[in-house]
Each structure stands twice: as structure tokens, then as C-alpha cells.
Amino acid sequence: MPSYAIEELLISSRPGALVAGVDEVGRGAWAGPVLVCAVVTDLSEPPAGLTDSKQLSPGRRDALFESVTSWAAGVGYGEASHEEIDTLGMTEALRRAAHRALSALPVRPDFVILDGSHDYIGSPWPVRLEVRGDSASVSVAAASVLAKVRRDTYMASLDCPGFGFDENAGYPSPVHQAALAESGPTAHHRLSWSYMDDLPRWKHLKKHRDPLVGEGQLSLFG
């Protein structure tokens, strides 16, 4: 289970420091925004059962959402739209979403624990990378749950019959793949991604980004 070991280590180097845990959701989706959540805690006992969102059922995540929100000392959300992802690439989109999330906090953190091995946040926040941080840090685990529930709820609210966004949240799935092949991309899809190359009827809609900007993306068939 996550603990405060990383938070306490950072605070020991600067007594009184505030630490934010940061996690993202939506990086690998074909549709919708990428969303980043930042959470600051007062190191109090977290809600029972809080852990990495991927280890929790949808029902358990939903049940934790309100309790984590009310327990946290500060919560900030930031997102980058599918248009920003198409224009800027995922790394820059993540950076912007993270800066928006951190700027939305009611307090300014002195340190940031970022889940993963790549610092997409950068200056001006001192970032500590933590692989599997959502399993190790209470703050990051809280951010992972809040980010997942918030984005899933948004994707389920979109009026896109047949795409199964209430189940797949815009990520690759057989239902999503079949709907794309039949109906083409919706107004919420990332049109620069390589899955568009696998849609003969719709590939003329693909957006082409400067090859020096952004990263390779998932194709429709793997």
C-alpha cells in the first residue's frame, strides 16, 4: 500500500515544505483530453483503501472520489485537449496540463512527486520521478484516483453513440475500433495519431504534425 515515505524524505530536507503528488490519465487514448491531477496532503491518515487507481474497480474508485477530494489539503486539475495534442504532441500537451494542474492548487508546492520515469513538468517545480509512484506515494495514489474518475466521467458524458466511451474512456477497444471503421472519428478524436492510417474511408481526415514535434502513436491494429 502507498505510504508517506517519499513525502517525508522530501520534507526532511526542507522542514515545513509542501509536497504535491501528480499523475496523468489519457495519454494512450485515441479520443479525448489528457488530464493531470495534483494533490497536496497534510500527511494525515488517507481514506481507507486508497491505492493506485489501476488496482481498484470502477465502483471502488467512484466511492473514493468524494472522500479523497474532501480529505486532501489541495487538489488541482489541468488538461490538454485533443486539439492541443494534435498540434503540439503529447509531451508538450502533458507539460501544459501539468502546469495547469499545479497552478490550480490552492497552495504552491515546494516539491512534486511525479509518477513515471520522464519529467514532463520541468521548471519551475522541483520534480522527483518515481516509477510506480501511484503504488508508493499516498499523494500520487490520490492523484491517480481523482484523475481517473474525473476523466472517465467526462468521457462517459460525451454524446457519441456506438463508441463505448462509457466503457473504454476513449482508449483502444474492439467496440471503439469497429465504430471508427464504420462511422469515422468524432469531434473528440486525436486526428494526428497513426490509427488514422488504418481507416481507409477516413484517412483523408488525418492531421499531419511537424515531424520534429511529438511522438509516434498507437495504430488501430497494434
Rank of each mutant, 00 (worst) to 15 (best):
M1N: 11
M1Y: 12
S3L: 02
I6P: 11
E8S: 07
L10R: 07
S12R: 11
G16S: 05
G16L: 09
A17L: 04
A17E: 11
D23N: 14
V25I: 12
G28F: 00
A29V: 14
A29P: 12
W30F: 15
G32L: 02
L35C: 14
V40H: 00
T41L: 09
T41F: 04
D42G: 11
P47I: 05
L50V: 03
T51W: 12
T51K: 10
S53V: 13
K54W: 07
G59I: 06
G59S: 01
R60C: 11
R61E: 04
G76E: 13
A80W: 11
I85C: 13
I85G: 13
D86Q: 08
L88A: 11
E92H: 15
E92D: 15
L94A: 05
R95Y: 06
R96N: 08
H99G: 12
R100Q: 04
A101L: 08
D110T: 13
L114P: 08
Y120N: 09
I121R: 02
G122V: 06
P124M: 09
V127I: 01
V127M: 02
E130H: 11
D134L: 08
S135Y: 02
S137I: 13
S139T: 00
L146M: 09
R150W: 04
R151Y: 11
R151A: 04
D152F: 04
Y154P: 00
P161T: 08
F165M: 01
E167G: 02
G170I: 07
P172N: 05
S173L: 08
P174G: 10
P174H: 06
V175D: 11
Q177H: 14
Q177S: 15
A179C: 14
A179M: 10
L180C: 05
A181W: 13
E182V: 03
S183T: 13
G184R: 02
P185R: 08
A187Q: 05
S192M: 04
W193I: 13
L199C: 04
L199H: 01
W202V: 05
K203G: 01
K207M: 09
H208F: 10
R209Q: 14
D210W: 09
D210R: 09
P211H: 04
L212I: 13
E215I: 11
S219N: 14
L220N: 03
